[in-house]
């Protein structure tokens, strides 16, 4: 498994750069992951999405439905794409320290 140095610590990531151990995640790691996704600054709106994703994941063991994400954060899908250019699954989930979503999503 490849490793990446994120925010000064060495963390295992998968081939797509998703961190493998969600416990290693913290805000500094999120910032470092954001840079790999071309997101240079994490605004309040970014954090709203990130925190929601994390909470849902810790509760249910999976990323939330995109529709639920939009509804509960109040963002449209387009706004989420504006915040995370590679999209909710590949971009937002990665920065939030979730494993890469699998299946036809």
């Amino acid at each position: 498994m490849p490793k990446m140095v994120l925010a000064g610590i060495e963390i295992e990531v998968d081939e797509d750069g998703f961190i493998q151990d969600p416990d290693k995640w913290n805000e500094a790691v999120a910032k470092a992951l954001a840079e790999t996704e071309g997101v240079t600054e994490l605004t309040e709106d970014h954090w709203k999405v990130i925190n929601y994703l994390r909470e849902y994941y810790l509760k249910f063991g999976i990323a939330p439905m995109i529709r639920k994400l939009c509804k509960d954060t109040g963002f449209t899908l387009k706004q989420i794409y504006d915040l995370f250019p590679s999209g909710p699954a590949k971009g937002a989930c990665k920065i939030a320290g979730l494993p890469k979503p699998t299946g036809c999503v």
Binding site: F60, G61, T102, G103
Partner: peptide, 19 residues
């Protein structure tokens, strides 16, 4: 993360029953 996961978790997305 496809067929193997589906056989293990019931679906390829890895959605558990409570979710």
């Amino acid at each position: 993360k496809g067929t193997r996961k589906q056989l293990e978790m019931g679906n390829a997305t890895g959605t558990p029953t409570p979710a």
